[in-house]
């Protein structure tokens, strides 16, 4: 029987298609978590009010922040889940090698991040419509979005989500390398955050979030996110080279 020659890129595409189909279940949790986020968003991000001689006012502020944050957490956990054995071994029932497996995983995460990024924008609008019908005050103020703001906004949402997915992937691979990381990482992370908080000014937490959140140039922001994500993903690939392919 003659041997088949395969092109890596061809197999990447096949694995990617297989993953889109077989990991399709992650979209169930996406829908559920988005709806949950919309529900939480009804609390509003703030309220202000005041009065003078002839005027009294009350403003309720709503934003899509919670939806985006929830999607970031969702992507983080999705990435961890797809590094687990149950998912990892699925690839190896068919043609693959480890780089292809990682690469198709990354493509998958990128795709769901893009979908999640767009759906954050869309579900913010669903939320607005719901607020419009469920709250009495009909005066609504919205920022007018220019096309550029709109595009950068959706791209930035996608990048934020992908950043978290990359972090989740990295942590997931660490946990696969050694179960102990499942306890070390949360302890380290949350312990660090709390110690930070106890110190009075949460420098670490603030610095990390400012590194991304306070960047006002979209180009620099995109560069920052992509560089950090690529470092995380390459590290994941490097770490996994220490493991057996399948046990």
């Amino acid at each position: 029987m003659y041997l088949t020659e395969v092109k890596s890129w061809d197999i990447v595409k096949k694995q990617y298609r297989y993953k889109l189909k077989s990991y399709f279940g992650v979209f169930t949790s996406l829908v559920f978590i988005q709806l949950l986020a919309i529900f939480f968003s009804f609390n509003g991000t703030g309220m202000s009010g005041g009065a003078s001689n002839s005027i009294s006012y009350e403003v309720n502020y709503y934003s899509g922040d919670i939806i985006l944050v929830f999607m970031m957490i969702w992507a983080f956990i999705t990435a961890i889940i797809i590094t687990t054995k149950a998912y990892r071994y699925d690839d190896f029932s068919f043609i693959t090698n480890r780089s292809i497996s990682h690469f198709s995983n990354i493509l998958f995460l990128l795709s769901v991040s893009i979908f999640a990024g767009i759906s954050v924008y869309l579900s913010t609008h669903l939320f607005q419509v719901l607020v419009f019908y469920l709250k009495d005050n009909f005066s609504i103020i919205k920022d007018t979005l220019s096309v550029t703001t709109w595009l950068t906004g959706i791209s930035a949402s996608t990048l934020y989500i992908f950043l978290f997915a990359s972090a989740g992937y990295f942590i997931g691979v660490l946990i696969q390398l050694h179960r102990g990381f499942a306890f070390i990482i949360p302890t380290f992370l949350f312990g660090g955050l709390i110690m930070d908080g106890l110190g009075g000014n949460p420098t670490l937490f603030m610095n990390v979030s400012k590194f991304f959140g306070a960047e006002t140039s979209f180009f620099l922001f995109a560069v920052k996110v992509l560089v950090v994500s690529i470092v995380l993903l390459l590290s994941s690939i490097g770490i996994s080279n220490r493991m057996e392919v399948r046990k």
């Binding site: 006012y57 709503y62 922040d65 939806i67 920022d143 950068t152 930035a156 922001f221």
Partner: peptide, 16 residues
Amino acid sequence: EVSFTKFSEGFAFSQF
């Protein structure tokens, strides 16, 4: 009496 609702698209939109 003014009572209104203000939406912002979220930090990813306002950031830039």
